[in-house]
Design a protein around this nucleic acid. Structure first.
Lengths: 234, 234
DNA sequence: GAGTGGTCTAGACCACAGT
DNA sequence: CTGTGGTCTAGACCACTCG
């Protein structure tokens, strides 16, 4: 049985390596041949092998250390990549018609919990925007958002009656850091009304905090309609 | 104002590009100079520029198309990467003590909904394992799992009394495809008992289906204790 | 058709971590 | 010290797609 690997192309090398891991030829914790040897086996340059192995390491299959070599990871730390879509795109991807509706928008002082969460200083002015996103005119998501005025001064003149605050923000201010959480919360009377569910119903919820170089920009809670699930495949 | 970019190194180029996007020098939808021109500006080869731009595109900042060139993405399709940890590791990362407890394990015929979900053929034998994961002896996660016997024959002899089915599976059978969903579900009487919450309480839930080259391996529902949130930062 | 990114080569030097 | 991966160069050809 000779090594059948006259393949070039880093993608083919990736596939070959994956096959060997899956077939058990290369077992967890096992040391792979070094790049130079693999380059000879695959009849390509080390650069090409390097790219294949580097990407497999990024994807969580391999562990690479200088001098120590490349090993198969025992418990593949596969990372699920969730693309965080705009609500509009999510709705349209579902084949539905998207509709936006503003519920309220007003300048106010950040409540204590928000000031603490965002580590606001003395300037606690925020724009509080609440709005609905519909799929085929049925409630899809209720969005409860606060935007830090000091970080985005033009927010006080913004018009959220037709454009959602998220889309407005994306057009207006960049961000550098995001914290995203998923949790299950309970529908109170008001939320139940917005989402057309019964009070107490479990509601899938996403929370998102965005910073621009250390300064908090916005905090958003997004409540999804009954039955929503966030799915990814890999 | 001359271009201050005598930097080499694809990482520095990445940072410089990000800075230009964040500073507004390169606006959304704007066409970047081509790789050759950037290589001249940065005093490096096109290969180096290519790597920097390629990675930024993978990270969701840029869009690249042959002939059309490289553009700044208007709505940064940032992808959140959730590392799916083993429960044990998650608990230990929280600084707690992990404890596992088997609830039940029995061979059975897959119920209709499961057979449909996994597209099982005539052989519907599955191993149904239910177990608990504790953090400092308080309920952390209830796991309800079915393992397809035909895909993992040794499962009928496996002992899940001390080792959780997930850790057993990882050691036993590789996988090639995963579907992962997050949702909010409602605690029924039994689940409420396991998780020590009141009936009807919202419960953050993860569902995971795993395949090995097209054959379904396992379906798992993981119910998390009250207050759990799945968080990522980027 | 022509311009752009995608990939590969052959070689080199470097940084880091085991020995 | 030495072996390994990390990165860069200078050049080349190819694949795609826009006009």
């Amino acid at each position: 049985m000779t090594q059948t690997a006259d393949t070039t192309g880093y993608k083919e090398i990736k596939q070959t390596v994956l096959d060997r891991i899956r077939s058990g030829q290369w077992l967890p914790d096992m040391l792979l041949p070094n790049e130079q040897d693999l380059a000879v086996e695959f009849s390509c340059t080390r650069t090409t092998v390097n790219r294949a192995l580097r990407e497999l390491a990024e994807e969580g299959f391999l562990e690479r250390r200088r001098k120590a070599g490349t090993r198969v990871l025992s418990a593949p730390q596969r990372q699920a990549r969730f693309t965080i879509p705009l609500v509009r795109e999510e709705v349209e991807a579902l084949g539905g018609t998207y509709r936006y509706a503003l519920v309220s928008a007003q300048a106010e002082q950040a409540p204590e919990w928000l000031a603490a969460r965002l580590a606001l200083g003395s300037d606690r002015r925020v724009m509080h925007v609440r709005c609905m996103h519909f799929l085929n005119n049925t409630p899809f998501q209720f969005e409860d958002r606060w935007i830090v005025t000091a970080s985005v001064p033009p927010v006080e003149q913004a018009d959220f009656s037709t454009l959602g605050p998220n889309e407005w923000l994306i057009q207006t201010v960049p961000f550098t850091n995001v914290e995203l959480s998923f949790l299950a919360s309970r529908a109170d009377a008001e939320l139940a009304g917005f989402l057309d569910v019964t009070v107490g119903e479990p509601v899938f919820t996403a929370e998102r905090i965005t910073w621009l170089q250390g300064s908090p920009v916005t905090f958003a809670k997004m409540y999804f309609a009954a039955g929503y699930r966030m799915t990814t495949r890999f």
